[in-house]
């Protein structure tokens, strides 16, 4: 179990963005960096970062040594800036932890270090991996101080994501059965947390190989998740992972499934929202498929279609 004191409350951080956020939701990148700066950290990113390799490994193409090598590269890039690596994606978070947990006993280590070493890449594997949700929780008092928008009236269903909760349960902040820290943060920000039956269910992962091959299975799982959240009264989902974000968000694209969809925000977007970041110019919520229909930002999203398709900005 991770202790909250292990999470840095200031200083430099390397923010590992991962492929999902860079592909579909640029607001996550923008908002994470600006929010962390406002909260007193010195965040760095680098486009030198490579894919964490999880998707290739999970699909059966890349074996574990590729994962180690990519982690080695990413750690080598990150440590030029900070020993504290913060991910915005559960799967990237899981990848780093899986690698760091196993490198001591892994037989491929020699081979990997030889390959990295041949290019003068010598990562010091002694780094700390955090998820940005944990860092935001650590900085909750500062968020409250700088809060401009209340979450009053917002009924939030929190979804932590499988690769945060389950792939390395010993590293979860709080109780691995029920971490509770995001719920606490949301409540402090004025929102109401709704407990729903399918809290521990996977989102359905629209993007993994199982879902690509069996789309109906994925849809049924996501539908069950959304139904449970709606029945509990939720009007917003908060996730910690861009893949979960895409899975929930994408439901609105399908005419038949639209009625099940709920607005969904990544934790970085939620924090940016309460800190008063511009919904279009900073949070880039126009990149979402499901309109974020919160009364707090109603003015901006009145002409959702105009913004999405014609890029027009309301003055």
């Amino acid at each position: 179990m991770k202790n909250v004191d292990e999470i840095p409350d200031k200083g430099s951080l390397f923010v590992f963005l991962g492929c999902q956020a860079k592909s579909r939701y640029p607001g996550i990148e923008y908002s994470t960096l600006k929010a962390l700066k406002n909260l007193g950290y010195t965040p760095y990113t680098s486009y030198e970062e490579a894919c964490c390799g999880s998707f290739a490994n999970f699909s059966g193409f890349a074996d574990f040594k590729i994962l180690i090598a990519l982690a080695g590269w990413n750690i080598w890039v990150a440590e030029k800036y900070s020993k504290n690596i913060v991910t915005v994606c559960d799967t990237c978070y899981g990848a780093f932890l899986r690698v760091l947990k196993n490198i001591k006993e892994n037989q491929s280590m020699l081979e990997v270090e030889k390959a990295l070493g041949s290019l003068n890449i010598k990562p010091d594997w002694n780094v700390n991996i955090f998820h940005v949700a944990e860092v935001f929780y650590r900085a909750k008092d500062k968020i409250l101080e700088q809060q401009k928008i209340s979450l009053e009236g917002v009924k939030v269903a929190v979804h932590y994501g499988c690769h945060y909760m389950k792939s390395s349960p010993e590293k979860v902040l709080g109780n691995s059965e029920d971490p509770g820290f995001l719920e606490e943060l949301v409540s402090k920000l004025g929102g109401e947390v709704v407990e729903y039956g399918e809290k521990h269910l996977c989102c359905g992962v629209k993007l993994n190989i199982s879902s690509l091959k069996n789309p109906k299975l994925s849809t049924n799982v996501t539908k069950a998740k959304l139904k449970s959240m709606k029945e509990a009264g939720a009007n917003l989902i908060v996730v910690t992972c861009p893949a979960c974000l895409y899975t929930f968000d994408e439901f609105a694209r399908n005419e038949k499934l639209k009625k099940f969809s709920l607005p969904v925000l990544h934790i970085s977007e939620l924090v940016g929202l309460v800190l008063g970041f511009d919904v279009l110019k900073e949070l880039a919520l126009q990149s979402h498929f499901t309109p974020i229909t919160l009364p707090q930002i109603e003015d901006y999203l009145k002409n959702w279609r105009m913004i999405r398709f014609k890029g027009k900005v309301l003055t």
């Binding site: 486009y47 030198e48 894919c51």
Partner: peptide, 28 residues
Amino acid sequence: LLNTGLILPFGRINIRRFIGLPPSAEIP
């Protein structure tokens, strides 16, 4: 992944530009 180092190509270039991020997230 083999050719660009990323499993998914970076995207939403217009939005990236609009919000002031570098339009390209290519690995140097």
